[in-house]
Design a binder for these strands. Structure first.
Length: 935
RNA sequence: GGGCGUUUAGCUCAGUUGGUAGAGCGCCAGCCUUACAAGCUGGAUGUCAGAGGUUCAAGUCCUCUAACGCCCACCA
């Protein structure tokens, strides 16, 4: 398929991404650029996207994460791989259910009254309508996913995969059901795994209440301390440390639980810390995980005193029933005080667990849950990791991951919600027999009234754990599974290494005997410019679409107003000061470049609108303008056979090869910011500042053959550079590629690269190879030219003589080879520096401004304009610096240990340096002498 | 309590196997030089957090210390 439409006119002075990006992406889709070919002869390369929540909106973390994947995919595609990047979304159980619940609330409908079936139906409708939003947003980034293979964790195939694994686990006793104390979110009314609970460092302000519990025989009291008085109704023992001499006599006696009247024993257990509180602990097995374990050891009663919503249940005395846990807490304290059983209240920070989702303080609750036995699975994962089968980039995450695997605990996988994969277990209503199967068992279908299916659904991460192969068709043995599993690399964030990465490795090994990926690239966390993580509640998030498309001031203020942070007014003021007229969009290319160049190995990276504006935007604009110039030069070339390459041509092509090498190396080792950095400097410093400047001069005065030579070089440089840059900036490079390619074809400027085929760049242009031209030519020769140019510019600036005044230059070098080299650049020097003369001399001429370069002394007739005193000071300064260097070098070379200990090459290099420094010193002394003689 | 990260120019950060420090922004000076003023040219700027060690040689490797940040664990 061929397309020849360009989207931005060459007369445009500035690059306008909005006129290009959308159109280019549509072109890619029409040309079917991103669809993998399972029957291809090319080697496969595959990545599965970390599936965003269906409820999600694109944020900066996604932008970085997906840009990295896109860079790798585009790079590999250009390198000749059959690339499959699987996109998709996660059903995100609790999140999605609560989004839809909110909609229902708004309609005044209680979701419970609708019932399970209807709620699920509503959620599916919502999903069909809004669930693709985030995938559409990914296209704006340029993501080259294979959209024909978009998956959703609750698709039929993926759901079947989930049930299949559940059954396998169950049959092999890796899944079990048990009464257990779990983290319970009273808002979402569901169990949470340990990983879903977050605890603030240092705890939160609370109290430690000291109570007296009277001995049953009326002989006195035991004093206990608790942070949670409302749980005392569930106390079934008092525990002391067996070694604690104070209390040894108490063990075996009993106390009467106040307010309740139950008699409970005093027992001894090592768990109790004699130093803390009073040394006596009330034990509440149904409401504390430690107490639960202790209760099992001592066969204690488990008394649950709360309902699902953390109100007090009927186990408690009547006056407390139905009260919220915090109301109950106050009443309990008051009641204890009234009975004279309250001793004191200590203020103290206490650890408080909160749901990572609802932020509600979690409750510990005793209930029937399903668990995965993690140890055997983790052991295999750990072995694979230690054998180097899974390695992280940066590698520090290896040990982080391994240490977690080492201390893993069983995983509670049941969730008491409706949206998700329903647990494929059926219970017989009379016998309690349990059937687990992939599809509804026949015995259940035969006697439906005798069986009930488990009401719970699986933790969302259970289905995510299968993602790298369920998306490829597992448990069916599809061609895709065979070809693309294991995937090539996983790109994700460090905060889901446990939730997701580890579990994928475990189930992958279990189901397919092979890790799902050998490499895991952990990308940095994006923060705002103050280093704060971006979040809705802080209102400091930057919407990637605002960066791409631009935003009005109101758009920018929106998230802040919504979050209502305490310093809202300050932030709003800052917004209106910085962006009185809003933010003008920089396009996806500029955003991608900014993110990639910022995202180094550091754990976090700060971004801001300003940064996108200052880092990415200028580069796209410069690329646009340089391309315009280059294209006009290609147009100018007139079919004559080109002149032989001169120094500047050989130099820029050598630099292109060096850049190619660096970029390939960076992509291959996931050091993508190095690639971004190298591409920036090659383009700006080498192409724009030197080659194009030279080409402009040559165009003015050069012959037709010389112009043709420049066009040829430019054609190669740009057609190479655009390909190198494409993985990072796909849109603008695609747009320009078409223009350069067409132009080069017309002008027959392809002698260097027969392999270039056509548009679109993203699938038809191979990634450049390093042709090692840097090994064939001496880069130093051109650097000498650059040094001379800079030195003259510098002298001009010092003398405050404008470019318009022509200068006469005299050069002194004792080296005939150097003189020859400079002669060949002479006319270029004259043009570039506006010289009326450029001659060689045999001895230093008096009365000139001078710059001492290592290979040559440059004299310019600027003496009359020079501030002699300032020049003298400057020369003295450099001389001093040089003296210091010489002293250092001499000392080093006098050191016998250095001369014999260091490699010869290093010693020789130091000798050469010293030699050069000594020569330069002489020249500087001469120059200084002349300056001084004037005073 | 355990683990990890960071500390380099005014700011944000590079610095790839040890060989005397770099970029962008900002700042100062001069330029509308026919691709780009969203630009060009030139300039100033550092006890590489501190202390010790290994080495001929340390921003880089080792030990300790400090400040900041993150993660895990939790004594009721």
């Amino acid at each position: 398929m061929k397309e020849r439409s360009f989207h931005l006119e060459l007369s445009e002075k500035h690059y306008s991404p909005e006129k290009v990006e959308q159109a280019v992406y549509d072109m890619w889709l029409r040309a079917d650029c991103f669809t993998a070919d399972v029957s291809s002869q090319k080697p496969p390369y595959s990545i599965v996207i970390p599936p965003p929540n269906v409820t999600g909106r694109l944020h900066m973390g996604h932008a970085l994460n997906n840009t990295l994947q896109d860079v790798l995919c585009r790079y590999k595609r250009m390198c000749g791989f059959d690339v499959l990047w699987v996109p998709g979304t996660d059903h995100a159980g609790i999140s999605t259910q609560s989004v839809v619940k909110k909609h229902l609330d708004a309609e005044g409908i209680d979701y419970r009254s609708l019932g399970r079936e209807q709620v699920i139906e509503r959620i599916w409708k919502w999903k069909e309508k809004y669930g693709d939003q985030i995938l559409l947003q990914l296209r704006r980034l340029g993501a080259s996913c294979d959209w024909t293979r978009t998956r959703f964790t609750m698709d039929d195939g993926l759901s079947r995969a989930v049930r299949t694994l559940f059954k396998r686990f169950y049959d092999e006793d890796l899944i079990y059901r048990g009464k257990y104390i779990v983290n319970w979110c009273p808002v979402d009314r569901t169990a949470l795994s340990d990983d879903e609970v977050e605890t603030k460092d240092g705890g939160e302000p609370g109290h430690l209440w000291h109570f007296r519990y009277p001995f049953s025989d009326g002989s006195g009291y035991v004093e206990i301390a608790t942070t949670r008085p409302e749980t005392m109704f569930g106390d079934t023992a008092i525990a002391v440390n067996p070694k604690d001499e104070r209390f040894q006599a108490l063990v075996g006696r009993s106390v009467t639980l106040p307010l309740v009247g139950r008699e409970i024993p005093i027992i001894a257990d090592d768990y109790v810390d004699p130093e803390f509180g009073t040394g006596c602990v009330k034990i509440t097995p149904a409401h504390d995980p430690n107490d639960f374990q202790l209760g099992l050891r001592h066969n204690l009663l488990q008394v649950n005193v709360m309902n699902e919503d953390a109100t007090m249940n009927d186990e408690v005395p009547e006056e407390f029933r139905g009260l919220d846990r915090y109301v109950a807490r106050k009443r309990v304290v008051a009641a204890m005080e009234k009975q004279g059983l309250l001793v004191q209240i200590e203020d103290r920070n206490i650890p408080v667990g909160r749901s990572y989702r609802s932020k509600a303080v979690i409750e510990y609750r005793l209930s029937d849950q399903w668990f995965v036995r993690m140890r055997p699975l983790a052991e295999r994962a750990l072995e694979a990791s230690q054998a180097g089968k899974v390695t992280f980039y940066p590698e520090r995450w290896d040990s982080f991951y391994q240490s977690w695997l080492g201390k893993i605990r069983d995983w509670c996988i049941s969730r008491q919600i409706w949206w998700g994969h329903r647990i494929p277990a059926w219970y017989h209503v009379d016998t309690g027999e349990i059937l687990v199967d992939v599809e509804t068992p026949e015995r259940v279908s035969a006697e439906p009234e005798k069986w009930v299916q488990d009401e719970d659904v699986l933790d969302t991460w259970f289905s995510s754990a299968l993602w790298p192969y369920s998306t490829l068709g597992w448990p069916e043995e599809t061609p895709e599974l065979k070809r693309y599993y294991p995937t090539s690399v996983l790109v994700t964030a460090k905060d889901i290494i446990f939730f997701w990465v580890a579990r994928m490795v475990m189930t992958g090994l279990y189901n397919l005997n092979e890790v799902p990926f050998h490499k895991v690239l952990i990308n940095s966390i994006i923060t705002d410019e103050d280093g704060e993580t971006m979040s809705k509640s802080k209102g400091n998030g930057i919407d990637p679409l605002h960066v791409i498309d631009g935003a009005t001031r109101e758009d920018l203020e929106g998230p802040v107003r919504e979050a209502r942070p305490t310093n809202m007014e300050t932030i709003l003021k800052r917004v209106s000061e910085r962006f009185p007229d809003g933010f003008s969009g920089v396009g996806a290319d500029a955003m991608r470049y900014t993110l990639l160049t910022s995202a180094t190995d550091a754990q976090q990276v700060g971004v801001s609108f300003k940064r996108f504006d200052e880092v990415g935007r200028p580069l796209t604009n410069k690329l646009w303008n340089a391309s315009k110039l280059a294209l006009s030069m290609l147009e100018d070339s007139d079919g004559v056979s080109p002149a032989e390459p001169e120094l500047s041509d050989r130099w820029i092509l050598a630099r292109l090869d060096l850049c190619t090498r660096r970029v390939r190396d960076a992509f291959d080792t996931y050091g993508i910011h190095h690639a971004a950095d190298g591409l920036y400097h090659f383009f700006w410093d080498d192409i724009c500042d030197w080659y194009l400047e030279i080409a402009k001069l040559r165009r003015k005065t050069g012959t037709e053959a010389e112009k043709a030579r420049i066009a040829l070089t430019l054609s190669e440089v740009f057609l190479g550079y655009l390909r190198l840059l494409h993985p990072i900036m796909p849109f603008i490079t695609e747009e320009l590629w078409g223009r350069f390619f067409d132009c080069a074809s017309q002008k027959n400027l392809f002698s260097f690269a027969k392999e270039l085929k056509d548009h679109p760049l993203c699938i038809r242009a191979p990634f450049p190879e390093d042709q090692r031209r840097h090994e064939e030519i001496s880069l130093e020769e051109f650097e000498l030219f650059q040094d001379i140019v800079r030195s003259v510019r510098n002298m001009r600036a010092k003398a405050n003589v404008s470019f318009k005044t022509a200068l006469s230059l005299q050069l002194l070098t004792g080296n005939p080879e150097v003189e020859g080299q400079i002669r060949s650049m002479k006319d270029l020097l004259c043009q570039m520096l506006n010289l009326s003369a450029c001659d060689f001399v045999q001895s230093r001429p008096e009365g000139n401004a001078v710059t001492v370069l290592p290979k040559v002394e440059v004299f310019a007739n600027l003496f009359d304009f020079i501030d002699v005193e300032a020049e003298r000071k400057r020369t003295e300064g450099s001389l001093q610096k040089l003296e210091k260097q010489i002293a250092g070098l001499e000392q080093k070379l006098a050191n016998q240990q250095f001369v014999s200990g260091a490699p010869k090459s290093v010693v020789d290099a130091e000798r050469e340096k010293l030699q050069m420094a000594l020569e330069t010193r002489e020249k500087l002394r001469d120059a200084l002498g002349e300056l001084k003689s004037l005073n």
